[in-house]
Design a protein around this nucleic acid. Sequence first.
DNA 1: GAATAAACAGAACGATCCGTCTATTGTATC
DNA 2: GATACAATAGACGGATCGTTCTGTTTATTC
Lengths: 202, 202
Amino acid sequence: MASPKREKLLEVARRLFETEGFHATGIDRVLAEAGVAKMTLYNNFGSKDGLIVAVLEQSSQDMIDRLEQTIQAASNDPYEQILGVFDAFAMWFSNPEFCGCMFQAAVAEFQDPNSKPAIAARGHQIRVAAMFENLCTKAELPDPKTLSRMLGMLASGASCTARQIQTREPADHARQIAEILLERAGSTGFAPAETEIANGSV
Amino acid sequence: MASPKREKLLEVARRLFETEGFHATGIDRVLAEAGVAKMTLYNNFGSKDGLIVAVLEQSSQDMIDRLEQTIQAASNDPYEQILGVFDAFAMWFSNPEFCGCMFQAAVAEFQDPNSKPAIAARGHQIRVAAMFENLCTKAELPDPKTLSRMLGMLASGASCTARQIQTREPADHARQIAEILLERAGSTGFAPAETEIANGSV
DNA sequence: GAATAAACAGAACGATCCGTCTATTGTATC
DNA sequence: GATACAATAGACGGATCGTTCTGTTTATTC
């Protein structure tokens, strides 16, 4: 299961897919840099798409594990943990090797929503959203569903913007906004504003 | 300059690039659907990258023109116009043919930041950011630079999320958040929260 | 109507894509 | 040491990529 050649393939493929894109990275390139036979790839993953899915799933697991580890190390308070997610993002963006969220790239490159890479990429976003919702619920914030969706959108916007301007600033801004949202949710909630929209102000 | 064949190429290429991606769309496919000779493409655009850049630039111009037109038709108040951007986004996302922001896709597909498509895509984001900053300044809001960056991040997050869940919800949520930000900027400004971050609360 | 230049359609090109096949190596078992 | 088996390397195949080249048609000017 955990063959060393398989791990090497995943590691190299992940790096190349991240830095150069999924379509732009040819299989031969991955094999050459990993020093692995072509048949090893096809025996382990079945196809290039299979390799891509495996990379996405492994990356998702890694990222979520590290995220939960980081925010749990930072605080026991779920309120603080929500903000901790954006601190973790800030650290992520600060890495000079940061080149954008791999899952956003996957969604962009595999436009067919039924393709396996697209499904795998959406799976990650669902897990992140579930994490936010779980934290909002634990923090006993009102309307955790809406709030967690807003937080997820903030996170997406931050990593999307960070890819372009290559600074941690978007994470800091997202954290500021999250702070305002949490504060506001704790006191008044979102009901008034939501009603205003629902009335259709267009 | 405005040859009909050239226009047809731009129209077809734009649609295919939007719905299937830049790398996934072959030149032959564009030519076949446009009913245009191959040399016409190379005479007009020089290369596939040239065509991509032309599509991005035309789309950017179109999108910004329509955006400004929409918000100016909605209100004269710059404060309301800022919120109008998100209403326009909501309408955009509501279109069943909506398949994500083309410029985000371009940034994802052309990872080399020096490639011409990547530069063209960044150009769009810069123009949108400038529009937000201009509106914030006209609304006489404090710290228009920070605020406009936050709004730009919200817009990115909204279109990024909308691509995945295929509803207008992200635009409505972004509008709600923008409303809160504007309200808050008008009264207290962001200085307190910003200081708190700057002190390093990790 | 003839001559010139541009625009046309489509074949042909080399490169690269993903995936398969074959021949060879190394390893474990008897 | 011989044999069975799995994993290897790398050639190979068909397809498609972006681009160039070759004739032919069309339009314009004298």
